[in-house]
Design a binder for these strands. Sequence first.
DNA 1: TTCACTGGTGAGCAATTGATCACCCCGGGG
DNA 2: CCCCGGGGTGATCAATTGCTCACCAGTGAA
Lengths: 337, 337
Amino acid sequence: MPEDLRQDDVELLARIAHRYYVDDRTQEEIAREFALSRPKVQRLLERARWSGVVDIRIQAPPWLHLDLEDALRNAFHLSDAIVSPSRPDAQSQREAVARSAAQYLERHLRDGTVVAVSHGRDTGEIPRFFRPGRRLDCTFVSAMGGSPRVDNPTNPNEICRALADHCGGRAESLYAPAYVESAEVRDQLLRQEAIAQTLGVAGRAGVALVGIGGTDDGCTMVRGGCLSTDEMARLRRQGAVGDVLGNYVDIEGHLIAAPHRDRLVALSVEDLRRIETVVAVASEAEKPRAILGVLRAGVIDVLVVDETNARAILDLAGTAEAGQPAPPEPRRNVQRG
Amino acid sequence: MPEDLRQDDVELLARIAHRYYVDDRTQEEIAREFALSRPKVQRLLERARWSGVVDIRIQAPPWLHLDLEDALRNAFHLSDAIVSPSRPDAQSQREAVARSAAQYLERHLRDGTVVAVSHGRDTGEIPRFFRPGRRLDCTFVSAMGGSPRVDNPTNPNEICRALADHCGGRAESLYAPAYVESAEVRDQLLRQEAIAQTLGVAGRAGVALVGIGGTDDGCTMVRGGCLSTDEMARLRRQGAVGDVLGNYVDIEGHLIAAPHRDRLVALSVEDLRRIETVVAVASEAEKPRAILGVLRAGVIDVLVVDETNARAILDLAGTAEAGQPAPPEPRRNVQRG
DNA sequence: TTCACTGGTGAGCAATTGATCACCCCGGGG
DNA sequence: CCCCGGGGTGATCAATTGCTCACCAGTGAA
């Protein structure tokens, strides 16, 4: 009970708030009933919200962490952050994150949208849950080459095909490997019209769907043969913590120059920056440093992540990035609530 | 958690409600963020309110009983009901009720309002608390005659004077006794211009402030000499439970014909019915039957009462009058909000 | 293949809210 | 007595909400 309010003021606040929120009366009706002006009723309602006389709670299901989502959005200037439940085993956790990402895509994709897709086990899980309620005439195009060394379902072309199948859209395959032996060969490849054309489409996509890779030897880049374990060790020594589309960053989000980049057939970080909505999915346990580094690089607009990683990212980021909590603002009444 | 909602629907409800009520986003902004239409967001918000995902509570002070006020208003078609705290002793309780009534009058009275005032200990206590924040050019006029047999502060003329003093208004005294010896004398008195004029003003008042009297021998009507104890006993035998301005009613609210009425100098029930806002105050312990009878008579628009009496009235009235509870309606957001 | 039903959309409009402002009243201090 | 500050009002207008509707797409049953 706010101490700075006189007893009869508190009673008036409570009565007026009761009429508005419980009895659904308009401010005009309340003004007439209490013989007050409408601005006065409005200020009293605002005061009721501010003072806690009106207590509005969102009874979210226990697996939702709206607070974490808020914190992530605010700390990294994301347009959206979705935190799904953590699960005891990695596969269930990956599925939960994939489901959330699929729901996001179902709502946001429109006919004509072009979606550039990366490789990865996290992105590879999304098509299973991608079931728009209506057909979507989208184009899914690979954002990077593939590799026979990894499972089909983690290859971009296959992911695109599966996504397109589930919504009646189209897939545009990139007929190129993810890596080649030299920069020269890579440049020569990119000059092939079929390849340049497809990567051009990917570069002009409205949405990119990417995974965030780690720097452990079990990551997709190493398993796919894009990097040797020696190259990965060197990247770690250089401070790399994670990558997106083969572009490695350190914990501060700075891009790390490495010769392997010249051999990759994939969209660059500059390409990603030009894409309006970059959706990143990450579910693997103990990957927060990778995610944090990529977030700080500033190319991600939407993050879909599990709870454990979310908490760890925010802990690592500390108060400097989570920022000073905003002063509590009066909430909407209904209307504003 | 509503069982009829799919998991992903519940998550969507919770997220959208969180944006609206906690983050203060507009429905338009939320629609854009979640790639939905505005009508859809609105329906989801309404559903969130309906389903309990949004929980709006009014943290009223413990001495307020907004539920009792609602129940009284609904059961007796009152335009307002104010329930003030019960107190251990009768005088404190009377003061609490008087304070509430004074606050009501302070808000509702306007320059030019004419207030007809009855006698009584409850109404007599109101001037002590009546302190409008600005001067009010009102006229307080006696609705009935006075009696030297009771304390000055419970006589209508004195109550009017005190109310007028506290707001810079005017008092119009009725120079007549509350009762005379016969109907003939009463009719003769009413023909006196001074008396007819004042009662005429009272009958045209916009507000009436009345007490509710009981049928015990200690009530103001008996103490003031308006009724003998024999007459009171006979009224009780006739089923009378209470009175307003000397007009007795039974528990069903039916007016009881009694010869004393012809000897009273006071506004009639018909007069009261013509007054737009009749405010009744009642604080005496164990008076619910009187209050219930008078409420059922249908002349009261606003009731100011203590909690104990309020509960007893509603209990006496039972479910027939309290009516079937209305089905739970979706509450306003802010708007409802 | 057709039809009915469900549930979405954008558009449009009325109602309500949020905010501002000029004006007024009152009280307190100089 | 004058001035200033606080807090109210009604009026006004922009923004937002509440609601309706025609239209569209998809699904399932006949």
